[in-house]
Amino acid sequence: MHKLFQKSALVGAFVLAAGAAVAEYPEKPIEVIVGYSAGGGTDVMARTAAPFIEKYLGDGASLVVKNVPGASGQIGVTEVANADPDGYTLGTFNLPGMMARTIDREADYDRESFTYLANVVNDPNVIVTAKSSGLDTMDKLIAAAKADPGAITVGMSSLGGDDHFMLIKLEGLTESEFTIVPFKGSAPARTALMGGHVAMGILNISEVASFQEELNVLGVATPERSDFAPDLPTLQEQGYDVVNGSMRGFVAPAGLPDDVVAKLDAAFAQLASDPDFLQAMKDTANPVEVVRGDEFKALTSELYDLANQVWQETPWN
């Protein structure tokens, strides 16, 4: 009874204040579910972006980041997929990982389970080699791989991730063969490279930017040189047409009301050109490349098809 009274009083207040019957989104805190622990790359992206999204949503909007770690993000993203599509539950989304999980594992979601808001980070892959390997150009590397198929060991962060798909693209392009050594995460892979325990590595540009003196960075898998480290050459410059990377962005459950989508989309559009935001992301090693709405959805579908194709040809588990 008391509650009912409160509610009607609230509604009454809104009617008076806005002069309209419908309350403006957002009228309560928005929860952002991050599928990783606090302090991880995805978490830092979400927490760095949150105040800017709040600013552009206006009206005293507030975003609350909630960490739901486990099963490489799958537990969190499943929670997002199953949440009410009212705009008060958003989540972070990683590509190609989240799509690859629907292929190599049983997942309670698929690519149709989400409203795609915006991809914010695109961390391109880079090919690096150990200083001790002596392979300091792409041509030398590919020649060595062809001379003795499988002799080149490739350290990367996991199977079924962006690093893995990158290698498969490279293998297809150059008709060469490598031996994959999947470490648990990219830092151990990078350390093994520095120690010369593996010959080559596929990492992301943010992970090698401050290790350029300790490793041979051969090329970046982007069409143009990355703003993040403009001194590093692309693979395309060297005649290897491979583009690949790890992406992180924001999604909501499928079926979000149109007015909410429009509001969020406008906020992300403004976010993309906010210099403070770009600087904050650069400081936390997140190369920004904002892709919104349907384009983001198309990108996801494209990556799903690639992962599926790879899985059909060479399943990794």
Binding site: S37, T284, A285
Partner: peptide
């Protein structure tokens, strides 16, 4: 993680 939050990247 706590270091990364403050833009202190290991290396």
């Amino acid at each position: 993680g706590g270091l990364l939050v403050h833009g202190l990247q290991p290396g």
